[in-house]
Structure formats: C-alpha cells, structure tokens
Amino acid sequence: MPNEWGLTNWPPTDAPPWIDATFGYWRALVEFLQMEGWTYEAPTPAERNKWFRDARDGDDHKVNGIIVISPAGVRYPFAVCTDLSHLELLILWPPYSAGTLSG
C-alpha cells in the first residue's frame, strides 16, 4: 500500500538513520558523496532481501538497490526504480524520493 509519499515499503524502517544532511537533487548528492570519500557496493543478498525486495516507487515500479557506504563504514540503502524511462531515486530523508533522472 503506498504511503503518503506514494511509495511502498520506503523508507525502510530498519535502515541506519541518515546523517543530518539533505540534498535537493541527484547531482548534489553525488557530488557530496564523491567529495567526502563515500563509496558504494551492491547489496548483499541479506540486504537485498531486507530493504529492496518489496520496495516500490510512486509508479509502483520495482527497484534496484545500492549500498552507499560512509567513511565510517555505515551502509545506507538507496534505491533506483527499474523503469529506464523513469529511474526514480528513493532516498532516506523526506520527501524520500529525489525524483527522476529522466523521463
């Protein structure tokens, strides 16, 4: 059932609390992560099962997960919907969606 943001099972309630920082759009987020030395990995099977399996964006698209890793080693889930014309990014702070990269 979509929540007030139109998203289903997002944000994950058991994800690590996001740092006290918000970003208005994809590029600002990526620039920050690169500048501050964050890295990324594919989710482990356990993470995929826990955080991404049932998540849906505002158009009920399935998502692919990615784990963004802080310099301190904390693993934060982010998700991108699988619709190539849409590519909605699901984030961990309100409004929990950074909108679409294209489409």
Binding site: A21, T22, G24, Y25, A28, A98
Partner: peptide
Amino acid sequence: GATGLWGQI
C-alpha cells in the same frame, strides 16, 4: 530539486 532554494543542507 535543482530549481529549488537550496541544493544541500
């Protein structure tokens, strides 16, 4: 977004 007031806080 990118046409909002602030890019990062």
